[in-house]
């Protein structure tokens, strides 16, 4: 007895005649030869494209490190640009405007407007040299006031020394006063210019003529002169 839940091929086959097992579909002539050639071509193209994208040995081992290094570089660049210089607000807008205005101005003015005579620049150097040679050479005085002061001081010191010698015991008063008269008016003026007050200069200039008739230091005692010198040297 057959199990009614078991399927047997013989039952099914019996329902369909073998005549129907024939393949009713067709293909174009030479189709399978052409298909084989075409499939092989496609495989070769894929193979060639895979070979074309080959990578050097060890490429993928280094790829990660290089990508991470690039990421760090980009982070660093962005950090530096953020913390770096900043421009005032609206600077670039103004700059653009100014540049544009300058450009427009330059466009309008073909030349600077100023002109010079013909061959001006050729003759300029020559004329400059000629003028320079025509001017008498002047040497620059380096601290002239100081030089005069030293000379005057030396004269005064000399006069005082001579006066001192003349005042030694046993010598005549007239003799001691005589060397002081040897100091020239100019030396005295120079000295006072340096060390004297404005009133001294005024006084001397007013009575310069009188000095020729009198001896220098007349009317001054020696102590005053010495005290004066001690204060000024």
């Amino acid at each position: 007895m057959k199990d009614k839940h078991t399927y047997h091929d013989s039952e099914a086959s019996g329902l369909l005649p073998d005549a129907l097992r024939v393949n009713p579909y067709t293909v174009p002539a030479g189709y399978f030869e052409e298909m084989q050639r075409y499939i092989l071509q496609r495989c070769n193209v894929i193979k060639a494209s895979e070979d074309a994208f080959d990578v050097p040995p060890g490429y993928f081992e280094q790829l990660e490190q290089r990508i991470l290094a690039n990421v760090k570089e980009q982070k660093l660049k962005s950090a530096v640009s953020e913390a770096g210089f900043i421009a005032p607000e609206g600077y670039f807008n103004k700059l653009e405007e100014q540049s544009f205005n300058l450009y427009k101005l330059q466009e309008k003015t073909d030349s600077p407007g100023f002109t010079v005579p013909g061959n001006y620049f050729d003759a300029l150097r020559e004329r400059t040299l000629r003028r320079a040679l025509a001017v008498p050479a002047t040497s620059r005085k380096l601290a002239p006031v100081r030089w005069v002061a030293y000379a005057a001081a030396a004269c005064i010191a000399l006069a005082v020394g001579i006066t001192g010698l003349l005042r030694l015991p046993g010598q005549d008063q007239a003799i001691t006063r005589e060397p002081l008269a040897l100091v020239s008016d100019q030396d005295i003026i120079n000295y006072l210019e340096l060390y004297g007050t404005t009133s001294d200069i005024t006084y001397i200039s007013e009575h310069l003529e009188d000095f020729g008739e009198r001896n220098i230091g007349e009317g001054l005692n020696e102590e005053d002169i010495e005290a004066y010198l001690n204060n000024t040297l």
Binding site: Y25, V27, P28, F32, M35, Q36, I39, R42, I46
Partner: peptide, 27 residues
Amino acid sequence: QQKIYWHVRRLVIDHDDADDLVQDIFV
């Protein structure tokens, strides 16, 4: 190739569809 083609052709019926599929299958 022929066995696979006929298997595909019986399922998709259309020759052009079967042709495309068989090429993709063998690739």
